[in-house]
Nucleic acid binder design. Structure first.
Lengths: 215, 215, 215, 215
DNA sequence: GATGAATGAGATTTCATTCAT
DNA sequence: TATGAATGAAATCTCATTCAT
């Protein structure tokens, strides 16, 4: 459940970034980031209140501002974590062959996407819904998406998926579809069985987008 | 004391559609709905302020509450408008044949979807992001989506699109994809040419989902 | 139920008082006064809204301001009606003899008080609770009460009710007691039977305050 | 994540008595209750504004809502204080003998009543005027009154006050009278000397209600 | 005479942020 | 480091009063 990359909470807000944190401080910061992510997921970007975060982290308002300059600063930190994850994700997608191995590639990658979405879905949605004020953060999100879309374009080109004449658009469509499906699956735990769904969607993508014959 | 008049005549002060409106009143209500839709689109559900709406509608706070009980009531009205549109949309999708006529069917329907999205996209997103408190409204949104998904399932079944073994999931994926693409196209005026995009996406769907050969 | 005095709505607000009213106008004004009294009774002076009044009178805000300068103006009119009634009440209390005739006197007068309270209780309470801003109206209320208290003092003196050495205070106490009892009886329809209660209270007063032996 | 601490610790942001208060917090809460009581006394239940309360307490709107969920919540707190006082009052009334000791009993009790009224009169009136929305609060008030009335009935029965055949009604009348008199004395500083008034009223009650001979 | 519509000042309530301990 | 308390700007909502038809 914890992402692979150790996420060292890089530029995590003026107050905290100006000091070196000891182990207790790091623990508190982690609690806040964690709580922030949960609140974001539960209430969305605009409805998330600092009070929710500190309550969930079992700490106080005062403490929050010891680690983050303001509410947006917390989001910034989460967004950077998320962008790292997504860049890693983009790098992980290998060539998609038309055979069973290609299917597996898609299947594995999709599972990784889902894992990431489970933790960072709320950030991703905030980006997608364009509700972030800070333009440098918007750019961060766009870049992260462009990375993945680029990887998909490369793989589609390699696969010579001829029945989609415009690989850029096909990649965008594929990404759009996957993002929304993951959203439904993770947010509304819609009774779907995760594994079965991954099977089916991987198949759909393998055949429908990469042009493989039935597995 | 005046037993003659039998009508309830709840009169002004009562919020919404509980009273009869004259032409001026209807005009004002329309202005508010219009402004509400725009503000929702610009700022999203949670960030939308009544102040924005009344400023855009060139009227006063007091007037707003003459027509709507509160902010959510305005959203409710817009949601009902939108649900009507979506039900209509579901009804409009005819059989998708593998020939050029089938492509046209998809193309035309997609254009209608886009039109609807241009007006009601913000409501649709509020629904999708599940940030609406009122559960009856959430249900309204789910029903509207289920209608469209159902229509898609029917068409996929007819078309005997064998390379997607699970039509329900395929329909959901298709809808997810279309919704997100429309979102990108309409919200971020992303430099795409609308017509060209419709052409390409219609083709993608026709071939990729309905299994038609290249047009 | 309609008070004896014809209550010609004397200084009933600038707008209306500046014009002669025809029969329709008089009817509308009566409707508003009536509704005003009811709303005052139901919600109290401060919580009474113009909207309640016009709704109850089945008329419009515009019409209200055709007859009254403002909300307080309506209260002024009602207060004058009430003051008239109370002055009349003060004049009606005859000598209280220690015999059955004296009991009857008290009983009849109490019934009249109750009748008045049924219509004007809310005004009386607004006066008592000192929530009226307009000082001339406060004075009106004080005068009305002083009238009744004065009449009671006279009757107590006549009756030579020696076990109350201070007739002024005894009169005040008597009035206080009667007012509150009437309040309970009329507002919370407290299951008491009106007639029985009048019997008992009249007896209590006759013996307890006027010193009569048991009837 | 921090499983050690078992306490709920709902922390700041939660309105009223749901969190533990430190000495400063308790002081502020007391200031607000005090100010609330004063404003209630000055302006009455409906006209009391939060703004008045916080101005009088020399604090801010934000602070108010740190301690009370809303205006009614403040009233609720005051009402509970008052109900406690009144129950205590009911318990304090001992047997009323016909001699000088009985007079003293009445006199002392009356003085206590007056003290209570000086602090809680406004709450008592809000109850009496039945303008409170919350029905559980109304019940609280009715119970408190019933307690006192019950105590009075007991004492009247003991005293065998035969010239009042209905002790329940006599108790109600007595309570009504005392409440109103206290109201006049405490609200309109009506030039009466408190001590003199207590003397006289105690005498009136002792003789008039409990049937004692002249002291 | 009568009415529906509009207005804006004022009241309540929320919440990000700062402060003192 | 941590925290409870305080703050005030901004948002929501109400309602007496005015206006145009």
């Amino acid at each position: 459940m914890a992402p692979a990359s150790p996420s060292p909470a890089r530029s995590a807000g003026t107050p905290a970034s100006e000091r070196e944190l000891r182990s207790q401080g790091r623990r508190t910061m982690a609690k806040l980031l964690d709580a922030g992510m949960k609140v974001l997921a539960e209430r969305g970007y605009h409805a998330a209140r600092v009070d929710d975060v500190v309550r969930k982290a079992r700490t106080s308002h005062g403490t929050f501002y010891l680690y983050f300059a303001n509410k947006e600063d917390l989001f910034r930190a989460l967004a950077h974590e998320c962008a790292d994850e997504m860049r890693a994700l983009a790098a992980e997608l290998g060539p998609v062959t038309p055979d069973a191995a290609g299917y597996d590639t898609v299947r594995v990658w999709l599972a990784r996407f889902m894992e990431t979405y489970q933790r960072y879905g709320a950030v991703i949605r905030a980006w997608m819904e364009d509700q972030v004020a800070d333009s440098s953060l918007v750019a961060l999100g766009l870049d992260a998406f462009a990375d993945i879309a680029g990887a998909l374009v490369d793989r589609l080109r390699e696969a010579d998926a001829t029945h989609f004449p415009d690989p850029e658009l096909a990649a965008a469509a594929l990404l759009a579809m996957v993002e929304r499906l993951m959203y439904f699956v993770t947010s509304r735990s819609a009774g779907f069985d995760d594994d079965a769904l991954l099977d089916t969607v991987a198949g759909m993508i393998h055949r429908g987008f990469f042009g493989a014959a039935a597995t």
